[in-house]
Amino acid sequence: MKKRQQLQKRFVLFTVGLLIMALGITLTIVANLGAAPWDVLHVGLYYQFGLTIGTWSIIVGFIVLGTAGLIMKEWPKFGAYLNMILVGVFIDMYMLLPIMTEPVTWFGKAAMFLVGMIIYAYGMGIYLSAELGAGPRDSFMLALTAKTKWKVSNARRLMEVGVLAIGWLLGGPVFIGTIIFSIAAGTFIGIALPQCRTLTHKWLKDTMKDEKVEIERGASV
């Protein structure tokens, strides 16, 4: 019973984290100062072939996840599939909101982009702290490092440079924001993730204590 309740709470955290992360992604795209490397690819595919940005996020995620599975010769965790689908759906949901419009001024664009990066980092921190599995891109990165014995940082750089080049050739939004995101995103996530993990573990621990108290009360009655 405890394990089931813990899993339910982790699932809520996982979903909320993805919802927040998708909002951050959407804000960085709408700000129109250049997107993150993977989003440059998604937007470029959208420009060239239609559909939606969220749909391309799902399609690319499926391809990447499948490739990671082939490399590792095992099925990725359930959380990776859920991540792939929900992030794409949430991005399209946010894109439909009337308030999601590009700011007129440079200051407004910069503010939207910065807020988007912060929200993205904390959304990722929350979903990762739920410990239900990484997303398709991170799964591919881990598979690549396991197969090649490269450092994680080198594998990630290679992936993002390749994805960025393809996205740029497709007409994706490469600008100063792309450079800023590539340089600063790791730092933002590095700050957000420990905070989110601390709060998550505290919440889950408090929940277990509450359950223990209820059981003891029931036994005493």
Rank of each mutant, 00 (worst) to 15 (best):
V89L: 14
R217F: 06
A134V: 14
G116P: 05
M112N: 03
E216D: 13
I20M: 05
L86Q: 08
R156I: 02
F49P: 03
L199W: 15
Q195P: 04
V12K: 13
L86R: 11
A165L: 14
I191Y: 14
L65Y: 01
Y120H: 10
F78E: 13
I189G: 01
L86C: 05
Y81A: 07
M141L: 12
H42Y: 07
G50L: 02
I191D: 04
F14G: 00
G44H: 03
R4W: 08
R137E: 08
I176V: 13
W75Q: 14
G172W: 00
L13W: 11
L27S: 05
V40K: 05
V30M: 08
G79H: 00
L142K: 15
A219C: 00
L51V: 12
G123Y: 08
L13Y: 10
F181Q: 01
T198W: 14
V43D: 12
L23R: 04
L169A: 14
I99V: 15
W75I: 13
T207R: 14
I166H: 00
I119F: 10
F78P: 00
M141T: 09
V30F: 05
I25F: 08
D92W: 05
G218V: 07
P194G: 05
K3M: 07
P37R: 01
L41S: 05
H201R: 13
G123H: 03
V213H: 10
T105M: 10
L65M: 09
T67F: 10
T105F: 02
G116W: 07
S153Y: 13
T101M: 04
L97G: 07
L128Y: 09
G66I: 01
S139C: 01
T198L: 15
G88I: 03
A130W: 06
G186Y: 09
T145V: 12
V16M: 10
V152A: 05
A219M: 09
F11D: 04
G123M: 04
F11C: 12
K209M: 12
G133K: 12
R10S: 03
K205T: 11
P98A: 07
L19M: 11
I179H: 03
F49C: 07
E102N: 06
I118W: 10
S220R: 12
I53T: 12
